Amino acid sequence: MDHDADRPRGVLSPADRAFLRGETEMTHDQSRRNAEARIRKRIVNAIEDFTLLVHTLKPKDREGVFDTVDDPAFVDGVLSMLSFTYLGLKESGMDFERVLVPAVRRAEEVHAADTLGSTADVAVDFDVRAEYGTSVADTADRIRSDTPVTPEELFAVAMADDPVVSEAETILVRLPHGTDADDGVLDRLASYLDAGLTHRPPNRVELTL
């Protein structure tokens, strides 16, 4: 979720962010393809830069980066970075475990040597069990009929750019287990969709778009 679209350039420039949000009018398909290719190349270069960062950036500078760990926008960015990596590797046919396990092992060994002055015997367990539920099309139909959906179902529809999100004036969401807690998913979705949130006890939320 783009908490501050006009912040200084990172991997993306402010113009790149505007393009990805659909705020830039492209008069030619070639212009759009050029923008997409430019963004892909910047992402690849940014990823490759981490080889230099992990080997040469001073610990105090690394710690300075993560001084912002209490900032929700920063934490959301870290979460999104890992999700982007997981999804990209999955779509490319590479298991996330293939990069996660050696990365964690190497980091723990460096931490032990630099911080504790010792060695480390590192074991990493990583297990994913995914059960796929309602299709995006079925969820979109339920939104059109004003039937409540779960935060996860709405997230899937939003990420799929289904037109129902832009067509609907309100979307009803059913919170899990009859509680008012959703781990912040709805707040992030509301920010992403630029929507208002109204709680409808005992376990409903209405998003106004």
Rank of each mutant, 00 (worst) to 15 (best):
S31W: 06
V128H: 02
R33N: 09
L100A: 13
I143F: 09
L186D: 02
S191T: 15
V205M: 07
P102K: 03
A112F: 02
A140E: 13
R129F: 06
Y86W: 13
V164H: 09
R62Q: 09
I43F: 14
V128T: 09
S80G: 10
R32Q: 09
F74T: 08
R40Y: 04
A168C: 07
D187W: 04
T27M: 11
S83G: 07
N34L: 13
S145Y: 00
G196R: 14
A156H: 11
V122G: 01
E153D: 11
T198V: 15
R174E: 15
D6Q: 15
I39H: 05
D2K: 02
L12R: 04
A18C: 05
T115C: 08
V104H: 01
F84I: 02
I39W: 11
R142I: 00
T24F: 04
G88D: 11
E97T: 08
G77L: 06
L100N: 00
N45D: 15
D16V: 03
D61R: 02
A73C: 13
E97F: 02
E206A: 11
E169G: 14
F74M: 03
V122F: 10
G77W: 06
L89D: 06
D141Y: 00
T24K: 12
A37F: 08
A137N: 11
A123G: 05
E131G: 11
L87G: 05
A168Y: 09
A195K: 04
D127L: 07
A140V: 08
T119H: 10
L189A: 08
E48Y: 14
L116W: 07
R7D: 10
L82A: 07
A120E: 03
V99T: 09
F50S: 13
P176N: 11
T51H: 14
V136S: 00
M94Q: 12
D127G: 08
V75W: 07
D138S: 15
R200A: 10
T56H: 15
R106E: 06
D183T: 05
L12Q: 05
D16L: 04
S118Y: 01
D114M: 14
A190R: 07
Q30M: 08
S145W: 00
R142W: 08
Q30D: 12
P201L: 12
F19C: 07
A158C: 07
A46P: 00
A37D: 12
D70H: 06
D61W: 00
V78K: 00
F96Y: 15
K90M: 08
L82T: 12
A113E: 09
G93R: 02
S83P: 00
N34E: 12
S13G: 03
D141G: 09
T134N: 05
D141M: 03
D180T: 13
R9Y: 01
T85Q: 06
A37K: 13
G196P: 01
G178R: 12
V75R: 15
S145V: 02
L172Q: 11
